[in-house]
Amino acid sequence: MHTSSSSKVAPLYTNAAPAQQASHRLKVYPPKPQKVYFFATCLVDLFYPDAGMAGIQLLEQQGIEVLYPQTQTCCGQPAYTSGYHDQARAVAQAQFDLFPEPWPIVLPSGSCAGMMRQHYPQLFANTPEQANAQAIANRVFELTDFLLHVCQLQLKDEGKPIKVALHTSCSARRELGIAHVGETLLDQLAQVERIEPKRTSECCGFGGTFAVRHPQISAAMVEDKTQALIDAAPHFVTTDCGCLMNIQGHAEKTRLKLQGEHLLSFLWRRTQNDA
């Protein structure tokens, strides 16, 4: 029998298990809990609070109590991907105390969930916090993934017929392996026709600090992504605020007729009576 798995192969050269490889296969969904911790992420907190509120309401609708630690700040990813790991670690560790009870931690962002779930173990490898980081990582879920697989969310569409293109972030798609989640949830909505944009798995060109370090390449990428979405539908939804800020910002700047929205906001809106 074929018995080898990447979890056995991988640890050879890295201090901690390489996140890219084994992680999402090892994910174990918990039974539906009474409570969850909500980690809003800095972009949602500052720019897209409606997406956060939509996520919270969807959770509450499932009878789950949402614990919102008021002292949360950032997952540490910007510093991590820029090479400032000491700073990233300090900020990440400051979040550990926010989640004292063993409830799942949910995030309305594939990117930040990916950071906590896949990179915390590496970031804290060979430090006293290693076990703690791993424990936190195991409890982290991207919110739509959690709604679909843990809450078994069933959506009832109250809206008018609409065509929508979905852009799944690269972290949701590849780091977390949950590209099917957004598709499945949208497909539950009877009046929503999901149109697959051309080159759907291609990156939008955000990449955090990439957008400002390599603005020309980033611009070329977001131009193409915006066009692909417009060609599919006048309305798009996405799992991540970084992509949303990038694509929507480009559409606005170039006065293209494309309206973007966070997937959570869209799902919540569609299921309300006045939708």
């Binding site: 809003a40 907190d45 897209y48």
Partner: peptide, 23 residues
Amino acid sequence: LGAWTQVRTAPRPAAKSLSQLRR
């Protein structure tokens, strides 16, 4: 915002942050 706004509008912070809304 320099490089960002060459091809995009600047992101607009919401009137109230999520943590404020929660409070």
